[in-house]
Simulated scan of single mutants.
Amino acid sequence: MLHNEQSILASDYAYCEAIIKKHSNSFYQAFSFLPEEKARAVYAIYAYCRTADNCVDENDTIAAKTTALNEMVDALNRFAFNQEDDHPLWRALRDVFNRYEMDILPFYDQLTGQLMDIHFIQPDTMEAMESYSYYVAGSVGRMLLPIIASQAKEDCTRVAVSLGIGMQITNILRDVGEDYMKLGRIYLPRQEMLLADYTPAHIANYEVTEGFKVLWERMASRAEALYDEFLGKVDLFDQDSRFAVLSSALIYRAILTSVRQNGYDCLRRRNYVSTHQMIQILSEATV
């Protein structure tokens, strides 16, 4: 590769790295432990997912959201036929696809997840919530597999998808109030809310009822079972990638602990893992 091409590519990856640093400090801290080539690949994939997210989050009307998402689908179609846009994101992704045995299908699945958000319907059951969680997060696990499990002796797809779904359930449990107040969305399954005698009015009034705690813990238990499934198979991932992916799982799982410590108040406050807690988790992570 010519020096100028290397310089452009380095700039493209720096563009992607800036996006993950801005939007997800926890992921950035965890995946920065990867070897540089793998870390850059992860940053590019994250930037792709964030760009897809922005199609929905940064537009006000359904028409504008749909237009932006359709443009993203068109861009991915061009990429699939090696005719990608001349843009840092797509140039970086092309390099990732050149270096690893990537599967483009989960990249399309991610866009399906964004379409589900545009035409949002509250999930009726836990199963429906997990199906949605696959498209917006389990798909990311599949995107990353060729990078972090390139030497795996067995198929890690289920494990990676489980981790992604567990993380998305964690997002849902962290952001109950924010999702409702800012986006008008309730990701808690409708049937589970009925069983807990918990209503949208309770969310609007920031009420943490005993029923809500039971509902929250039921979903948290499912997320933790998915984390456990991943933790039991972490040795299948590449040796140079285990610490990073384990760290990301443990840091995200700790969000659930944070919500519990704050009295299950995920309605009016933002629960997060502090930098000090991250450092402690990273120091205790063993692979």
Rank of each mutant, 00 (worst) to 15 (best):
M1I: 10
L2D: 14
L2Q: 14
E5R: 13
E5Q: 14
S11H: 05
Y13G: 01
C16L: 11
C16N: 00
A18G: 09
I19W: 01
S24E: 01
N25M: 13
S26Y: 08
S32I: 11
L34E: 00
R40D: 02
A41I: 12
V42S: 02
Y46H: 02
Y46M: 03
A52G: 07
N54D: 13
E58G: 05
N59C: 07
T61S: 09
A63D: 06
A64L: 08
L69T: 00
E71P: 01
M72L: 06
V73D: 13
V73F: 07
A75S: 12
L76H: 04
L76W: 08
R78D: 09
F81M: 15
E84Y: 12
D85S: 12
P88I: 07
R91D: 03
L93T: 03
R94P: 02
F97I: 09
N98D: 12
R99A: 11
Y100V: 06
E101M: 10
L105M: 15
F107S: 01
Y108R: 07
Y108M: 11
Q110F: 14
T112Y: 03
T112D: 06
G113R: 03
M116F: 11
F120N: 01
F120S: 04
D124C: 15
A128G: 09
Y134L: 03
V136N: 01
G138Y: 00
P146M: 08
A149P: 00
Q151K: 15
K153H: 11
E154G: 14
C156K: 03
C156E: 01
Q168V: 10
L173F: 00
D179N: 04
Y180D: 02
Y180V: 02
M181W: 11
M181E: 13
G184H: 10
R185F: 11
I186A: 04
L188N: 02
R190F: 13
Q191G: 09
L194A: 11
A196I: 08
A196M: 15
D197H: 08
P200F: 03
P200R: 07
A201R: 07
A201T: 11
H202S: 10
E207T: 15
T209K: 14
G211Q: 03
G211M: 02
F212T: 00
K213G: 03
V214N: 02
E217S: 10
A223G: 05
L226W: 10
L231Q: 02
L231I: 15
K233A: 12
K233F: 03
D240H: 12
D240V: 03
D240G: 04
S247D: 01
S248G: 04
I251G: 00
L256M: 10
V259A: 04
Q261V: 13
N262K: 15
G263S: 06
Y264C: 07
C266D: 07
S274Y: 04
M278D: 00
M278G: 00
I281Y: 05
L282M: 06
S283T: 14
A285H: 02
